[in-house]
Design a protein around this nucleic acid. Structure first.
Length: 580
DNA sequence: GCCGTTTTCGGCCCGACTGTTTTCAGTCG
């Protein structure tokens, strides 16, 4: 089976190999853009390649050649041009491109002049003093390279990207310190963290200040920094002890919007905006949107810079939500009512001390009330999840009574008696229908047999979606970001069944899951499905993960009306009751 | 290789920083 990610990986490899052979840089870029386009595509491209290959060209960034390669990969399992290219470049060379400060020109130079083709060979050549004979390799360059190589070798196979929920708090912690300085007027994190991507390569921080020097000096002197990569007039860049790179840009308050737009990206989105500016006789850079000057290359008067909204307006575009700035295409108009964090009014997936949670029913309800929620669902694990202290039928029946009693005592919030019931490997649920019918809400989730074949996974999840007593399919694939792939069901089939049975598909907010993932959300929204956004609460801090789930929903263009957690009390309970 | 509200051919976003150079190449975002 060929996934969109497989296709994207092939094109990314194509780009790397071409670059190392000295190909036309625009061609290299075209392959990389195609890779990003495939990665972000919500439909299954392999199906498209087999059934309607002509429609591959409809994806922005995929042209005649890329479309042919996709069909080759899907139908034969390989791309002849790519196979040939692999023979021309030593296999260890692309890895060298990931070394900080090492680009294609230098890698190629090292390969051709010193026959260096692996990280280990590079480390040895540095130690042996062989790099000193290479043009443009002075003592400082060699010392920097030595440090970068050592850092990489020490980290082993550590991932180069960091999970969203671990990255954002680091960004916020640093910004809090910089915001405390007297000259600071505005702060923000930008880049892929602001776009809500599930993993973040490096952190991009932005500060508006009347005293840039104070900001930068405090930044590079912070604890937890392993080395300073750059420390210039307007930009500083450091590497943290955990290997994460953090870039700081200090700007004037009047240009904050332009800088925020620029550093939020994505790269493809920026390129499109700049092209659009040129087409309207304007010029866009990180300092603002300007009229074109009288002479070639000169800037005219400033059009907009203070806010992103002003710049989009001047370019005659709707203000693009950061989470939807992933694609190069500017032909997608964001839906009027894109879901917002403040609109979430219910948590429908939470655990108590009765299974593997840290909170009592009353504590859980109090936290939900404090957030202004009208409903909280208590959904402890079912008996098959023995490792999570899953409830037997007898315990569940007693738990239902406890929940009813707590609801009457707490007041001011609906506390639903529910269960996160295991979907067994064969698609059966872990409780019988008679038991499930006693519950207000049923979240059905896969927890085991997460390596089963795609066909079996599809059948298993379809059975749960179509089960008349199930409201929500919980973390549908069971994937753990950078941990395990989870199930690979046919998403299109799941979406169709979910729409027909009005079963919501869950976005699990935990930053290790974010499952459904963004591209699956988009497919679900396009198919007309309901979406549930749940924190899968086990402890008090889990409620704070809601923002990551909402970001994922927005990346999938989820309108408020499609999210059951954003419905008012009566609409939500009407839907719940419709399955009873 | 991709693409079209200047274009089916001829362009392709733009600036900061570093180190090695004496005016710029390479890398990065």
């Amino acid at each position: 089976m060929t996934t969109n990610q497989d296709i994207a990986d092939s094109f990314a490899e194509f780009g790397d190999l071409l670059e190392l052979t000295g190909a036309n840089p625009f061609k290299v870029n075209a392959f990389r853009r195609a890779a990003r386009a495939c990665e972000g595509e919500s439909g299954d491209m392999a199906t498209l390649a087999r059934e309607e290959p002509a429609r591959l060209r409809g994806i922005s960034g995929v042209g005649e050649s890329s479309a042919r390669h996709i069909v080759e990969l899907v139908t034969t399992g390989s791309i002849p041009d790519l196979v040939a290219l692999r023979k021309a470049v030593p296999p260890g060379l692309p890895a060298l491109l990931t070394i900080q400060g090492l680009g294609p020109k230098t890698v190629r130079l090292l390969w051709e002049s010193l026959a260096i083709t692996t990280l280990e060979e590079l480390a040895k050549a540095i130690d042996d003093g062989k790099l000193e004979s290479v043009p443009r390799m002075g003592p400082k360059s060699i010392a920097n390279l030595k440090e970068s190589v050592a850092a990489r070798l020490a980290s082993g196979n550590a991932p180069l990207r960091h999970r969203l929920g671990q990255s954002v708090p680091i960004a916020e912690g640093i910004l809090e310190k910089l915001a405390a300085l007297s000259g600071t007027t505005r702060t923000a994190y930008a880049g892929s963290a602001r776009r809500g991507r599930e993993t973040v390569g490096d952190l991009d921080l932005l500060v508006a200040s009347t005293d840039p020097k104070a900001v930068k000096d405090l930044f590079v002197a912070m604890p937890g920094i392993s080395r300073v990569l750059a420390h210039g007039e307007t930009r500083s860049s450091v590497e943290l002890a955990n290997g994460m790179q953090v870039d700081l840009r200090v700007v004037e308050d009047s240009a904050f919007g332009a800088a925020l737009l620029y550093f939020t990206g994505s790269k493809d989105h920026n390129v499109r905006l700049r092209e659009r500016a040129i087409g309207r006789s304007m010029h866009l850079n990180e300092y603002g949107l300007f009229r074109a000057g009288e002479k070639e290359g000169e800037l005219g008067p400033l059009v907009a810079a203070a806010t992103e909204a002003a710049i989009y307006e001047a370019l005659e575009l709707p203000e693009w939500p950061p989470e939807l700035r992933e694609s190069a295409a500017l032909d997608f108009i964001p839906p009027a009512g894109l879901l917002e964090l403040s609109q979430i009014r219910a948590e429908l997936h939470a655990h108590t001390t009765e299974s593997d949670g840290e909170l009592s029913i009353v504590e859980l309800a109090a936290l939900a009330k404090a957030r202004g929620f009208h409903t909280i669902a208590v959904t402890d694990h079912s008996k098959a999840s023995a490792q999570a202290n899953g409830l037997s039928v007898e315990r569940l029946l007693a738990h239902i009574d406890a929940i009813r009693e707590a609801e009457a005592r707490v007041g001011g919030i609906r506390i639903l008696a529910g269960s996160e019931v295991d979907i067994l490997a064969d698609g059966h649920l872990d409780y019988d229908d008679e038991t499930l019918a006693k519950l207000d809400i049923v979240v059905a989730s896969p927890h085991t047999a997460l390596r089963q074949a795609p066909e079996a996974a599809t059948a298993r999840l379809l059975a749960a979606i179509r089960h008349p007593l199930v409201h929500i399919l919980g973390h549908p694939t069971g994937r753990i970001i950078q941990g395990r792939d989870g199930l690979s069901p046919d998403i299109a089939q799941l979406c169709q069944a979910a729409r027909e049975s009005r079963t919501a598909l869950e976005i699990n907010c935990h930053w290790m899951r974010l499952d459904l993932r963004d591209t699956h959300v988009r497919a679900a929204i396009d198919a007309g499905c309901l979406i549930a956004i749940d924190c899968d609460v086990h402890g008090p801090s889990d409620f704070d993960n809601l923002r990551f789930g909402v970001a994922t929903a927005r990346r999938g263009a989820t309108p408020t009306t499609s999210c059951v957690n954003a419905w008012d009390r009566s609409a939500l309970h009407e839907w719940l009751a419709s399955k009873r």
